[in-house]
Computed example of a mutant assay.
Amino acid sequence: MDATTTAYDTLLREARERFEQASDFTVAVEEEFALLDPETLDLVGRFEEVQAAAADTGLAPNLVGELIASEVEIKTGLLETVAGLPAAMQERRAELAALVEPLGIALAATGTHPWADWKAQRIIDTPHYRRNDELLRYVVWRNNTFGLHVHVAVRGADRAIAVCDGLRNVLPELLAVSASSPFVEAVDTGLHSARTQIFTRFFPRCGIPDAYGSWDAFERYVRLLYATGSIDEPTQLWWSVRPHLAFPTVEIRICDAQPSLADAQALAALAAALAARIARAHDEGEPVPLHPHRLLEENMWRAIRYGLSGELLDLDRGVAVPARARLEQLIAWVEPVAGEIGAAPLLALPERNAAERQIARYREGASIEDIYADLVVRPARVGEL
């Protein structure tokens, strides 16, 4: 057995062991923010300065780079229940905003920057991102996007795969409510989530994964990728939901970044509640359909194009329904488990999501620049948007 095989054998064995020992439904959230010139609101490649400024603060363990130097990611850290998410997310946003303001940097969180030129951005100099640059070239250069990721711990390797399989069904719904990126390259794209079109349609091993049914089936696929040189680290599985091989979590990666703290909190709670509800269904033998990829992709396109304003297919009944009604149905479905994990008080749909609010202002005559300016996160208004 060569060294490479030994490395991924060890990776997969240890990942499985971590899942078998995990504590159910602990959570963590990651939010990605654009770093901006406060006057022009152009992207500025100053991540290294932000990282240096954070070095001696409590934010340091929860602040990381994310591909381009004009982007920063903050993490809540591990939380025992969803009930801890609102305070943790507000605290991290406030810490980040206070950190960058003296540096002359502003922040915003939408799925795309509305006018930045991807050719003007610089990839940060880390081994991980240098490797991605070598592998993906134009694909990674073009990916100037910003998301919100939710990690939910799931006990049991097969059970974690069952949760991933079930979450495939609701990725379009999560995208529909989270859509925040109608503008990119200084145009109204006609999409509600331009980020998703850019990211999931460009990257390999991205978007909606197959349903694997068991850890063994998932592991066989990952082994094939390693053995054939298709991947050399597990983060090169860029799916919109994935079992994380470094943590015993199911990671939900479909959502656009959220300008509004309240929307971000509600979205994270819904994602966590859906994961817990699917785990409960698995435990109790409640059937969770494994819908064909082609039908899920139809809903994904509808969510990209129309967000919360359009219709999604109810795949169990074979009919189109308003996206908002479909989200309300899901909230009702998760309510019993949501109460147990502390998510219930947060489960509310916004009157309009971030994309709808921006599109409405644009149709009223506001410029893209003015719309984006109103979404900038500043220390005094962290909780206002």
Score class of each variant (00 low, 15 high):
273 A>I: 12
176 A>G: 12
177 V>I: 15
235 T>F: 03
338 A>D: 01
61 P>Q: 00
58 G>Q: 08
371 I>H: 09
6 T>D: 14
323 A>S: 06
44 V>M: 12
15 A>K: 03
111 G>D: 02
298 E>G: 00
116 A>D: 11
34 A>M: 15
67 L>K: 08
56 D>R: 13
42 D>N: 13
35 L>I: 13
294 R>V: 12
22 A>P: 06
50 V>L: 04
330 L>E: 14
15 A>D: 00
198 I>T: 04
362 Y>P: 06
47 F>M: 02
308 L>I: 06
319 V>P: 05
222 V>P: 00
70 S>E: 08
157 A>M: 03
318 G>K: 02
255 C>D: 09
148 L>Y: 08
370 D>Y: 01
374 D>S: 14
242 R>N: 10
143 N>G: 10
342 G>E: 01
92 R>C: 01
7 A>Y: 14
173 E>R: 05
136 L>D: 09
52 A>H: 12
46 R>A: 11
276 A>E: 05
14 E>S: 07
295 L>K: 15
243 P>D: 14
58 G>I: 01
217 A>F: 04
17 E>V: 06
179 A>Y: 11
344 A>D: 07
253 R>L: 11
288 V>Y: 09
254 I>T: 05
149 H>K: 07
194 A>C: 04
174 L>H: 03
242 R>F: 12
155 R>C: 00
380 A>R: 06
365 G>K: 08
292 P>T: 10
63 L>A: 03
66 E>K: 08
225 L>Q: 08
213 G>F: 10
283 D>Q: 14
12 L>T: 09
17 E>M: 05
19 F>Q: 00
362 Y>A: 12
163 V>Y: 03
68 I>S: 15
32 E>L: 12
9 D>M: 09
86 P>V: 04
31 E>R: 13
304 I>W: 15
15 A>C: 08
228 T>F: 10
191 L>C: 03
